[in-house]
C-alpha cells in the first residue's frame, strides 16, 4: 500500500513538468505556431529559477523569474516567426540552442549549490484519507497548478469566444484575418503563454524535483512535451493522460534500475525516448486506421503575414 502510494507520488512529480510544458505548447500549436524551442525555454526557466531563488533566498521569486525567462525567450521567437515571418522550425531550433547555452552561462556560478526544495502542501483532514489522501491532497503547488492549467485551457479553448478565435487562427489564419481578427496578435499571446508554461515547467525541475542546478538537466523533457502534444491529438485532457503515461514510464525505468534488473542501465534510460517513438508511431497508425486523417491544426507551422 505505502509502496503503491510512493510510486503514484513519484509518477505525479515526474509527469508534472511534462504536463505543464505540453499544455503551454498545445495552446501555441492550436494558434497555428510550432515552437520547437520548448527544451530551450524550459532549461532557461530551470536555470534562472534556481539562480534567482539562491540569490534572493525566495523560491517564489525563483518561480517568477523562471516564468519570466520562458516568456522572454518566447518573445524572441515571436519576433522572428510572427514579426519577421521567419521559418518556425529553424527559429525553434535556434531557440533551443540559444536557451541551452544561456542556461549554462546563467547557471555556471550556481552549480552544485543545494537548497531546500519547495515543499508539499498538506490539506488537513482530506490528506488523511487512505490512498487518495496523500496522492490528491498532499502535493506541491505546481501539481495543483498543472491540473488547473489543463482544466483552464480546456475551458478556454472550447467554452470561450477567445478560445474559438485562437483555434480559428490555427485552422485557417486567412479566414480569421478576413473576419477581422488580429491573427498575429493572438498568436503572440499564445506563444508568450507557451513560453511562460515552459519556464514554469523548468522551475519545477530545479526548485522541486532536484533542487539544484546541473547543466542540461532537462534531458530532453521539452522534446517529450512536444511529442505529448502530438500524442494527445492537441486535446488538453489527453495531454494530461499522455504526460502521466510518460511519467509512469520514467518512474518504472528508475525503479527497475534501483531494483537491479539484469538489463544495462543505459537501456532502461533509453526507454522513455524509444517509447516516445513507439507511442507516436502507434497513434499515427491508429489515426490512419480510422481514416480521420490529420488532426493537427490545419495552419500549423505556416507563417502568416496579413498583407503579403
Amino acid at each position: 500500500m505505502t509502496l503503491a502510494i510512493a510510486i503514484l507520488l513519484t509518477i505525479i512529480t515526474a509527469a508534472t513538468p511534462l504536463l505543464i510544458a505540453a499544455i503551454g505548447e498545445l495552446v501555441v500549436e492550436r494558434s497555428g505556431v510550432l515552437n520547437l524551442g520548448v527544451e530551450g525555454m524550459m532549461i532557461m526557466g530551470a536555470a534562472s529559477g534556481v539562480a534567482v531563488a539562491i540569490v534572493t533566498g525566495s523560491s517564489a521569486l525563483g518561480v517568477v523569474a523562471a516564468i519570466g525567462a520562458g516568456v522572454a525567450l518566447a518573445a524572441i521567437f515571436a519576433l522572428l516567426t510572427l514579426g519577421l515571418a521567419a521559418n518556425q522550425y529553424a527559429s525553434g531550433l535556434a531557440l533551443t540552442i540559444f536557451g541551452t547555452g544561456l542556461s549554462g552561462v546563467v547557471g555556471a556560478p550556481f552549480v552544485g549549490i543545494q537548497r531546500e526544495g519547495i515543499g508539499r502542501i498538506t490539506i488537513p483532514f482530506l490528506s488523511d484519507i487512505p490512498l487518495i489522501g496523500p496522492v490528491l491532497f498532499r502535493q506541491d503547488l505546481f501539481v495543483y497548478a498543472s491540473v488547473a492549467l489543463v482544466i483552464g485551457v480546456s475551458w478556454f479553448l472550447w467554452r470561450t469566444k477567445a478560445g474559438l478565435v485562437l483555434r480559428a487562427c490555427g485552422e485557417n489564419p486567412v479566414s480569421a484575418h478576413a473576419l477581422g481578427y488580429r491573427v498575429l496578435r493572438i498568436r503572440l499571446y499564445a506563444v508568450l503563454f507557451g513560453g511562460g508554461c515552459a519556464g514554469l515547467a523548468g522551475a519545477y525541475l530545479s526548485l522541486v524535483l532536484t533542487p539544484f542546478w546541473t547543466s542540461g538537466m532537462t534531458a530532453g523533457r521539452g522534446w517529450i512535451a512536444l511529442a505529448i502534444v502530438v500524442f494527445a491529438s492537441w486535446l488538453p485532457f489527453r495531454a494530461m493522460l499522455g504526460a502521466y503515461l510518460f511519467g509512469g514510464l520514467i518512474i518504472l525505468q528508475l525503479h527497475a534500475q534501483t531494483a537491479g534488473v539484469a538489463i544495462p542501465s543505459q537501456f532502461l534510460a533509453a526507454l522513455p525516448y524509444l517509447l516516445t517513438i513507439v507511442a507516436l508511431t502507434l497513434i499515427m497508425a491508429a489515426r490512419r486506421g480510422t481514416g480521420a486523417g490529420s488532426v493537427a491544426p490545419a495552419g500549423l507551422g505556416q507563417p502568416f503575414t496579413p498583407d503579403r
Binding site: S91, I97, F98, G101, L102
Partner: peptide, 21 residues
C-alpha cells in the same frame, strides 16, 4: 563557460533568419 559558444551559435541563427526577411 563553454556554453557561451552555444549562445553565439543560437544568436547567429536568430540573426540569419531575421536578416533573410
Amino acid at each position: 563557460p563553454r556554453d557561451m559558444t552555444l549562445v553565439f551559435q543560437g544568436m547567429l541563427l536568430f540573426y540569419i533568419l531575421a536578416c533573410d526577411t
